[in-house]
Computed example of a mutant assay.
Amino acid sequence: MNTGSSKLPIYGALAANLLIAITKFVAAGFTGSSAMISEGIHSVVDTGNQLLILLGLSKSQKPADKKHPFGYGKELYFWSLIVAILLFAIGGGMSLYEGIHHMGQPTEQTDPTWNYGVLAAAFLFEGTSWVIAMKNFLKKKSKLSFWRRIQNSKDPSIFVIILEDSAALLGIIVAFAGVYLGHTYENPMWDGIASITIGGILALVAIFLVIESKGLLLGEGASPLVIDGVKKIFQENASVDSLEEPLTMHFGPHEVLLAVNVQFKTGLSAEEIEHSVDDLETTIKKEFPIIRRIFIEAESISRSIKK
């Protein structure tokens, strides 16, 4: 599995979030801002999440063995589910708690200059990480909308980073608004509201990631584009009479299993059918390199054996 290109946005996000988390907590210590504490927690969770995604990528590349004959590609999907759970429980949960606690026991804030400076730097770093991830995601052209491409993506190492960075940028804007409104109107409740809003954003992103990761773990099929292309290859083969709907399953972002039931034309010998099967497998793997394993059930052969 080629995952080298997928690691670039992860490394960028990891470095950015680690530095940002430190500066946010320093700023929160000087100013007492609840929103800044929530943002610091968010950056710590994001840093840990990127480490987990890297762990998943590493484990997913282990070669197949007797215990796991189809390989370890789904390790990445498992760790992306853990990332979603952590984002919801720690990122969203603690931000909500901090905001509610701050509203119940508001803390008088000092000069917000620290907060503004840190948030500006955080926006710059997060924005850079987001741009890297987006370029990596959009380098393959598609007619689908951006949101549909995110939903159809089978690579958590890309869409997790994009969604986390997007949530981080939105969270920074909310934190800035909370700090600004709190000091402008001398009402610390705005800071607590901002913290609760940040928690809500993280919880929504986490729920989406849980849904996507669950689908991938259960075994999502290949994209309609791949399935239609596979059907076309079979239909254009002179030896094929008809075929049932191909069955596919992702065992990783770049590894798909294909199973298809084919009715070959009558009058073909076993040797001719075998040659056709070899040609079909070669053509499919050349056209769609992500299809690593192909199982073709030849109807005419099966029927002749039963007779």
Rank of each mutant, 00 (worst) to 15 (best):
F295R: 01
S145A: 01
G267P: 09
G192A: 02
E274V: 12
Y72I: 04
G4H: 11
S145G: 04
L202W: 01
S276F: 15
D111C: 09
I100E: 08
K139M: 06
K59A: 10
E245K: 14
L169N: 01
E212G: 09
V83P: 09
A21C: 11
D46P: 02
V277Y: 15
Q151S: 14
S300V: 07
Y97V: 05
D155S: 01
L209F: 13
F123S: 12
W79V: 07
G40L: 10
K139D: 04
S142W: 00
F137A: 00
Q263V: 04
S242I: 06
G192K: 06
S33R: 07
G215D: 11
A15R: 07
V174R: 00
K24W: 01
I305Y: 12
E244F: 15
G32H: 11
Q263L: 09
K66N: 14
F30N: 05
I290A: 12
K306G: 03
P289N: 00
I193S: 06
A222N: 02
K59R: 12
G104W: 12
S95W: 04
I196N: 07
E126G: 08
S304M: 11
S38Q: 00
I90N: 04
F88Q: 03
I207G: 03
W190G: 09
S6M: 10
L247T: 13
F264P: 03
T197I: 06
W147H: 02
G219A: 11
K62M: 09
K285R: 08
A28E: 03
A168K: 02
V26G: 01
A35L: 08
E212H: 13
S239T: 12
G178K: 01
S80W: 15
G93C: 09
D111I: 11
D228V: 09
L257R: 03
D278E: 15
L258H: 06
E164R: 00
Y77P: 10
K139W: 03
E212Q: 15
D65M: 07
A89D: 05
W147C: 02
A238E: 14
E220W: 08
A120H: 12
